[in-house]
Nucleic acid binder design. Structure first.
Lengths: 225, 225
DNA sequence: GTCTATAAACAGATAGAC
DNA sequence: GTCTATCTGTTTATAGAC
């Protein structure tokens, strides 16, 4: 199924409906899962007609693909732009600072934006499903962002960005971030937090950033290895 | 719906069918999701009849609950026993060693056992759904294991196990582990690994354990804080 | 306990009026 | 582009024979 090749949308009203369908679908797919969400629910939530899904996206699968495109674009703006457009200019300290900023803003987005939960759930359910959605997310978001952070981490530690330790290290950073979104309820319960607000995010950020600095210190060339 | 209160299973054949249904369901729920899996598929995979699900579990929801019980029991044996029955005897070095062993075996289980993928997927989809399944997994697995590791980490760092930094720190450990299961395909693609075998697991283990030692070093009382 | 057959509800897709 | 009405297939649950 080709993505985004369904309708030419000659009118503005069509674009509006199309957009509302994507947003409603993303929220429902994220909250309940793709299979558990019926096209009737989506249309109802988007104040649109059931048949409009087939008209705009060719069917439920087309809507899933459109959601993936939307998510890739969103993530590109939120994470990608911050990371991809930063330039440490060869300064290791600046490189570490950029990584810290990227982690901070990613953490803020993941834990304070209501839409982040649905986006994260949607992405999480798609990254274990080999297919067009995975390919789009990987090549458009994961690969470029990971590569760029490896570049910065390589600079910060004085190692080759392609070094296995660097590439795996970046994944351990991402894992730490993500868990506080995935295990949201577990964390809140165990920490005895009613909600995860600014103060709680700050506590998490502090620990994660400390871990990243510890990684850099432990893996710096000349400082042991 | 009360869990496990459906049938008394007076015969051995009944127990056998019941067990096969749980195993088949867990594999399918994990691989495709609860909603995407039909009771027909489950019955077929378990070499049982469709009606047997209603007979043994009262319906599809009862089967989900039975899977949760089975998973809680499994995780209790695999992770829980290793962690819960270790005793560092007040020695900080031994405490760190126990944590390292626990992380190592959890990593081994997550990345090399075929069943781990389905269990992880199943758990992942349930921890964002407040309900009886979440409660069971939290009180029977997550809470006791997390508390115990906090105890060890407190001993290793010389801090109070209830310290916010310790409790959050343990979550960052778990996040690092889990990501290599959740982001399996992303990691493999980016690392240019065909599969994640013993050698690859060893590389991951090395980085994660190094991070944990760096955490302990950075958060030891007397060593800065 | 296990089976077949079927009921009742629901899914996604589509034809055709407007 | 949007709507109603409907087609076709599938779902879970269940009744009842064995």
């Amino acid at each position: 199924m080709a993505r985004g090749a369904w309708n030419r949308d000659s009118s503005r009203a069509g674009e509006e409906t199309r957009s509302q369908l994507i947003h409603a679908a993303l929220a429902l797919f994220g909250a309940k899962g793709f299979d558990a969400t019926s096209t009737r629910e989506i249309a109802s939530a988007a104040n649109a007609n059931i048949a409009s899904i087939a008209y705009h996206f060719g069917g439920k699968e087309g809507l899933r693909a459109a959601c993936a495109d939307h998510v890739a674009e969103q993530l590109g703006r939120i994470i990608g732009d911050v990371v991809l457009k930063s330039d440490p200019g060869g300064d290791p300290d600046k490189a570490l600072k950029i990584i810290e900023n990227a982690i901070s803003s990613a953490l803020g987005f993941l834990l304070s934006q209501p839409q982040a939960r649905d986006i994260a759930s949607f992405v999480m359910s798609e990254i274990n499903r080999p297919g067009a959605v995975f390919e789009a997310l990987y090549t458009e978001v994961f690969e470029p962002v990971h590569t760029k952070i490896c570049e910065f981490l390589g600079l910060a530690t004085g190692r080759d960005p392609k070094d296995e330790v660097i590439r795996l290290g970046v994944f351990t950073f991402i894992g730490q971030l993500l868990y506080f979104r995935i295990g949201h309820f577990i964390v809140a319960r165990r920490m005895e937090w009613e909600t995860i607000g600014p103060a709680e995010i700050e506590a998490i950020r502090s620990v994660v950033l400390s871990n990243i600095r510890a990684f850099v210190a432990a893996n710096k060339t000349g400082a042991g290895s």
